[in-house]
């Protein structure tokens, strides 16, 4: 494996009106790994995801993806570059059906609709539409979504909504998938099913950066664990080392 990480975050700082949310945070994510990011509530995990996906501009530090500097790019450009995410608070598009939500994820990879497709669409012969529909169905299958695909997402359980959101992110064919607490609200069976799905996603050559409070899931799944506490990185390394780190035990694991 090459030494250069897929994602390289260096010295990132974010403040919210004087409150330091991230302080000199550095983190390297190796290609094709499952990398977990853990830490207590309010540690800054979601903020770091927002920085990596371009929704929050860091005040200091730099971001590199495949050794290419991308600090300051817009979120849509970052998605095209190959980083996709879900949201801790599910943000599906309510007026679109389940399948249409996932189709939006495909947009950046679709060819333009030709005039022919535009005219013949009502006869069911729009190639771009068919392509997007097939790909979206494939992604819903991958995340083992079994519900109705034509209904609005609001009719689905929260667990299913999380699956749909992961499918939507996967539809953009990302090299790096950011998952923010995907197992929140899942029972143990659903959580272990999700673990399998995440392994499957990695098996497809993708890299996963995972924020999760379910420590059992994290330590069985991750190749690498980074611990964030009060905006600072306090430990990073293989799960076995992080698990026994005294600073981590005091700041996080001890009080779980």
């Amino acid at each position: 494996m090459s030494d250069a990480p897929l994602l390289d975050v260096t010295g990132v700082g974010v403040t919210y009106g004087g409150y330091v949310a991230l302080d000199d945070v550095s983190c390297r994510v190796v290609e094709n790994s499952i990398h977990a990011l853990i830490g207590p509530n309010g540690a800054g995990k979601t903020t770091l995801f927002n920085v990596v996906s371009g929704l929050v501009k860091p005040e200091s530090g730099s971001l590199q993806f495949r050794e290419r500097q991308y600090t300051g790019l817009r979120p849509d450009q970052i998605l095209v570059m190959g980083i996709a995410r879900n949201f801790q608070q599910v943000r599906l598009f309510p007026v679109l059906s389940v399948i249409e939500n996932v189709m939006v994820g495909c947009h950046s990879r679709l060819p333009r609709t030709s005039f022919r497709d535009f005219v013949l669409g009502p006869l069911g012969r729009d190639k771009v539409d068919r392509l997007a529909r097939e790909r979206a169905a494939e992604m819903l299958d991958l995340v083992e979504y079994r519900g109705d695909t034509k209904a609005p997402p609001s009719q689905m359980t929260l667990v299913d909504q999380r699956r749909i959101e992961i499918a939507r992110a996967l539809a953009s064919d990302p090299q790096l998938l950011l998952l923010d607490e995907p197992a929140a609200g899942m029972n143990p069976a659903e959580a272990s099913q999700l673990s399998e799905i995440i392994r499957k996603i990695r098996g497809l050559g993708r890299t996963v950066l995972l924020v999760e409070h379910n420590t059992r899931m994290v330590f069985s799944l991750a190749d690498e664990v980074t611990v964030l506490s009060a905006g600072k990185i306090i430990a990073s390394g293989p799960p076995s080392a992080v698990k026994s780190d005294s600073a981590v035990v005091t700041a996080y694991l001890g009080n779980v």
Binding site: S53, D76, L79, R85
Partner: peptide
């Protein structure tokens, strides 16, 4: 229309 942030994060 639904969610500018999510739309932008999905590449729109």
């Amino acid at each position: 229309h639904e969610d500018e942030t999510a739309a932008e994060a999905m590449g729109i």
